[in-house]
């Protein structure tokens, strides 16, 4: 099962962070970043499968392709923002983590505007 691989990588990373924390605290941030990156890269081909099935489903449904692309982008931004803000929270920078989350929300809101307009057009067409 693949989940054990990710858990193992996570544990290795945490053990390394703890060992290096009392020797050299600055390096624990780098190890946390590297472990997060490894896990996300290892996850990427699984995410790709999910997205391909969703694209097929959305092609069959009546949605214009632009809408699904925006939804996909929003999910992507959600992932990256969560990754960055959780790493910042780990290293006692809650304020920076909050700023990253705020910027993620605003960028997502800007991306969501065309979806809202296209959905309203579809609804208008139905009535």
């Amino acid at each position: 099962m693949d989940i054990f691989k990710f858990i193992a990588i996570g544990f290795i990373g945490t053990i390394m962070v703890v060992t290096v924390k009392n020797v050299k605290p600055e390096y624990s941030l780098f190890i946390a970043l590297a472990t997060g990156a490894i896990i996300l890269i290892a996850l990427s081909n699984k995410i790709l499968e999910v997205i391909n099935t969703f694209t097929q489903i959305s092609d069959k449904s009546g949605l214009p392709p632009g809408v699904f692309n925006s939804i996909l982008r929003i999910i992507g931004i959600g992932y990256i923002t969560e990754y960055a803000s959780s790493v910042c929270e780990d290293n006692e920078c809650q304020s920076i983590a909050k700023k990253i989350q705020l910027s993620g929300k605003i960028v997502i809101f800007i991306m969501a505007l065309p979806i809202i307009t296209s959905i309203i057009d579809i609804i208008g067409g139905l009535i």
Partner: peptide
């Protein structure tokens, strides 16, 4: 030591962001 590790980690994060950009068409 910090610079060496920083370069390694930045290269990894760059790879991660490129993969995510390719997947989510960002």
């Amino acid at each position: 030591g910090l610079v060496i590790v920083l370069l390694m980690v930045i290269e990894m994060i760059g790879g991660l962001f490129d993969t995510l950009r390719a997947i989510f068409r960002l």
